[in-house]
Design a binder for these strands. Structure first.
Lengths: 210, 210
DNA sequence: ATTAAGGTAGACTGTTCGGTCTACAGTAGA
DNA sequence: TCTACTGTAGACCGAACAGTCTACCTTAAT
């Protein structure tokens, strides 16, 4: 902390764990590999975190904090309309996808490889998602949407789709596609706030034979 | 196969493995648990599949076949417009999400917990996704879209988002939201086939500070 | 100078896992 | 009836894993 600001042991472990958990999977990543990548002794991990599970919790906590920090402090800094700030979200997604160490969202990945009926992973991911959606909704409300709740959910779904698509295809194109889709959503919201509901029931009867 | 049509050993293993891999994760599911659930002897698994990895491959193959079968044979059966068939897709998604044994898409989950730079899991998931997108695209083309490729990618992204959202939230609401979002996409496609591209560059400059 | 904190190195442990092996039972066709 | 096939039951093996322990080093405050 004096002048070189060398990474602390905790930071080194957190960074290595985050990368390996995302790149190779959580269960597939052994403690030894994390230690090797972090350049940290075995004992240090257990004095700081106590277990692999606690390390994962710390990684998820850190990830959530980073996103909330960005959402609450950095995004409001650029003074533009709420609609523009929503779209900037997708450009940020693109920058994230372009990073060489992008391997999907660790929350989604963690849920995917843990028990889905119960457990703290599911709970943490749910809480994280709730908070992200809440922040997204305040942007949507600020942009003056009538049916803000539905628009928010559509946008949230597109964001999640973009993250997973980018993970599977290993390409950042998904962010661009997502942004265009979001623009469609916002355009429909402006033109016809309640028309969407009316048009949705016409074709529902066709699904009976499936 | 005579009249009781009892499940074969392979089927029992495939079903148990599919459910457990999805519900609890692939790495977190031990061989013994699969055998217990399937009611099958340990040796039978290895005579039929040789390894856990091969069993996973078989599960993925089966899953892909089921989707392709549905897409190629059942969907064309209901004689309605291509646009309506696209929307029926989302109703089917809803029925899938409502099942008590829905725990996400096994392809997405498998990618999430395996190496993301290389490996057969990534390859299989990529091939599967490619074939699904191709079928989706033929529907979009049939519906008369000008920029069919972009519309297809938007819809594919929404489908993936719905699947992941349904997995994380353990709710089938995502299918309904996805359908409404898809209707927005299709409406924008009809009204202004090329307008979307023009409007997308206006706010791109705002992201420099991120 | 001494002490205490926090680090490294790496041997060690108990458990669990994927996978193999032996022994045996039911069944159906030659 | 013999044989071949397909299955069960479960002991067993080696490897890998998460986690513990001992011994030692460095650094900074007392």
């Amino acid at each position: 902390m004096t002048k070189a600001a060398r990474k602390s042991t905790e930071e080194k472990l957190l960074l290595a764990a985050r990368r390996l958990f995302c790149q190779a999977g959580i269960h597939a990543t052994g403690i030894s590999r994390i230690l090797e990548e972090a350049g940290v002794a075995r004992r240090s991990l257990y004095t700081h975190y106590g277990s692999k599970e606690n390390l994962l919790k710390a990684v998820l906590d850190t990830e959530a904090s980073m996103w909330f920090h960005w959402f609450d402090l950095e995004l409001p800094d650029l003074k533009c309309s709420a609609r523009e700030r929503i779209l900037v979200l997708f450009d940020l997604l693109g920058k994230w996808f372009e990073k060489e160490d992008f391997f999907g969202c660790i929350f989604i990945n963690a849920v995917a490889e843990h028990e889905k009926d119960s457990g703290w992973v599911k709970d943490m991911a749910g809480a994280y998602r709730y908070q992200i959606i809440a922040r997204l909704q305040s942007l949507v409300v600020e942009s003056g949407a009538g049916n803000a709740d539905m628009v928010t959910q559509k946008l949230g779904l597109i964001i999640e789709g973009a993250i997973v698509t980018a993970m599977v295809t290993q390409s950042s194109k998904a962010a661009h596609i997502a942004r265009l889709a979001a623009e469609d959503i916002l355009r429909c919201m402006e033109c016809s706030p309640s028309q969407a509901e009316a048009a949705s029931s016409a074709t529902t009867a066709a699904m009976e034979s499936a």
